[in-house]
């Protein structure tokens, strides 16, 4: 009688025992982070100049043409090349805008026989994109935007031709603006 009870108990326990669990355990941890598009532009430096000098002021600089005209008041050739380091980690908008040429700041009543603006050829290169314009009095924007990351130098070439004029006396100025925005 006792032996029979013992056997029955063993069978019940065996049936109640769950299937053996897998001995190995695992879990995971996922780590992720984003890098937003950012752009950085460093101050320009001159890579070449003829009849002109460049002075950096930290954020931009000044191109001073040594002699805009010769003894006959006709323009002399001058040229300046600038390098502007830029890094953008993604798509970005980059534009170079000129006001439209070197304009005389002193000629209140310009003479029809004399010019009051010295036009120049502006060429901008960024990556594989090159844009250029010859100024003609109106503001012009060169678009060098790119849809991907880019690092390198934006190159600007400003070239004034010889033999234009005669030029009215006075101070001639223009301003070239470089605008960079991450997109």
């Amino acid at each position: 009688m006792t032996a029979h009870i013992g056997i029955a108990l063993a069978l019940i326990l065996a049936l109640a025992t769950p299937a053996a669990a897998a001995p190995t355990a695992s879990t995971l941890l996922q780590v992720s982070g984003d890098v937003p598009v950012r752009c950085k532009m460093s101050p320009p430096s001159a890579s070449g100049a003829a009849n002109a000098t460049f002075t950096s002021n930290g954020t931009g600089g000044d191109i001073a043409i040594t002699a805009l005209v010769g003894s006959d008041a006709m323009t002399l050739a001058s040229q300046a090349s600038l390098q502007i380091p830029i890094v953008c980690s993604g798509s970005h908008a980059l534009t170079v805008t000129t006001r439209g040429g070197l304009a005389n700041q002193n000629a209140a009543t310009p003479s029809p026989d004399f010019a009051v603006r010295a036009d120049y050829l502006l060429t901008a290169r960024w990556g594989a994109v090159t844009q250029s314009v010859t100024t003609s009095g109106s503001a012009v924007t060169l678009d060098l935007s790119q849809g991907s990351a880019q690092a390198g130098d934006l190159s600007l070439d400003i070239s004034l031709p010889a033999g234009k004029g005669p030029m009215t006396s006075g101070t001639y100025t223009d301003e070239i603006t470089i605008q960079l925005n991450a997109q």
């Binding site: 995971l28 941890l29 996922q30 780590v31 992720s32 982070g33 984003d34 890098v35 937003p36 598009v37 950012r38 980690s89 993604g90 990351a149």
Partner: peptide, 8 residues
Amino acid sequence: IAGTYDDT
């Protein structure tokens, strides 16, 4: 370079 970075 901009974008999403991850690992498990």
